[in-house]
């Protein structure tokens, strides 16, 4: 008891500061979590909350339906592969861009190029999709224009399973690289210029400085963002794919989210959608725990 009092006396101020956050989280995040039970019931979208709570549990029916889906493994593979490709390209790209922008000494050039680089972040996905058609369209698309000029046959890139994922990844890098670099630039701003000066005097090369000063200095951001990215692996970019795909590329493009969207669209399958959502959450949790463990193993601060 005195122990509790001692802790409270010493740290009470900080608990008090945290209180609003805790209250917020409990009300707006934890209370609605009772909705998770929808995954284990047969709920239609016009049942009242009372009916949802009192309706009987039906076990894992919706999970089993999903696992038994003809395309289950296809969907898993597409979701993970698209996500992994995207991570491989769009995770390092902002770090690289931030490093390059950081080496610019002209303040105006720095600000302007940085501001321009995140323009695409403000385009909603419909606009981006529209631009993708302009670039890759068969008739009059910019790429096909070049293909024809060099004597080739126009290709339908968006309908071609060999090209579709490349277009997805490229679009994602284009749209996220500038915005993603902001956090890294902020972290670089916190680094001590004296360290660089000392390194310069010691004759360290640019590459050595990046390796031994800049990267370690921003590693806390890199690591936590990487952990988050791993936890996000099952979100392969729903809206982007929905706007760009078509039946000809389903085999490489149909992901869990687009499948559930189509399945639920006409039939209002709320419980089914919840079950798939919960399944994704559990996988995400496992991935996050693994990534966190790995971060600790490398000696970094992870999530906790």
């Amino acid at each position: 008891m005195t122990e509790v009092l001692r802790i409270l006396r010493k740290h009470g101020f900080y608990y008090l500061l945290f209180l609003p956050v805790a209250v917020y989280l409990i009300i707006f995040k934890y209370v609605p979590m009772i909705g998770i039970m929808i995954a284990f019931k047969d709920v239609t979208p016009f049942m009242s909350m009372g009916e949802i709570v009192t309706s009987s549990f039906i076990g894992f029916k919706h999970f089993v339906n999903f696992f038994n889906s003809f395309f289950f493994w296809d969907l898993m593979e597409n979701t993970l592969m698209i996500s992994i490709y995207k991570t491989l390209w769009s995770f390092p790209a902002p770090i690289l861009l931030a490093l390059l922008i950081n080496e610019v000494h002209n303040t105006y050039f720095k600000r302007i190029s940085q501001t321009i680089s995140y323009l695409p972040h403000f385009f909603s996905m419909v606009i981006v999709a529209g631009l993708v058609y302009v670039v890759f369209g068969v008739q009059g698309g910019l790429v096909n224009h070049l293909v024809v000029l060099t004597g080739g046959e126009p290709q339908h890139y968006l309908g071609d399973p060999r090209w579709f994922r490349t277009i997805l990844v490229g679009t994602t890098v284009w749209q996220t690289v500038g915005w993603g670099s902001i956090l890294y630039l902020a972290a670089m701003a916190g680094l001590n210029p004296e360290t660089y000066e000392a390194a310069n005097i010691d004759g360290a090369s640019k590459i050595q400085q990046v390796r031994h000063i800049t990267l370690p200095g921003i590693s806390h951001v890199i690591v936590i963002l990487f952990i988050f990215r791993i936890g996000d692996l099952l979100d392969a970019g729903f809206e982007q794919i929905l706007l760009l795909y078509s039946p000809s590329v389903y085999e490489v493009a149909d992901i869990i989210d687009t499948y559930v969207y189509r399945a639920g669209l006409l039939n209002l399958k709320y419980s089914f959608a919840s079950a798939v959502g919960l399944y994704k959450s559990i996988l995400a949790l496992l991935l996050l725990l693994a990534a966190n463990k790995f971060a600790h193993f490398l000696g970094h601060q992870g999530i906790w």
């Binding site: 609605p32 979590m33 009772i34 979208p45 949802i52 936890g231 919960l278 959450s281 949790l285 996050l288």
Partner: peptide, 12 residues
């Protein structure tokens, strides 16, 4: 925990 689990739209 809320980063991973959510109860969906209706309860919210």
């Amino acid at each position: 925990i809320p980063m991973v689990f959510s109860g969906g739209l209706i309860p919210f």
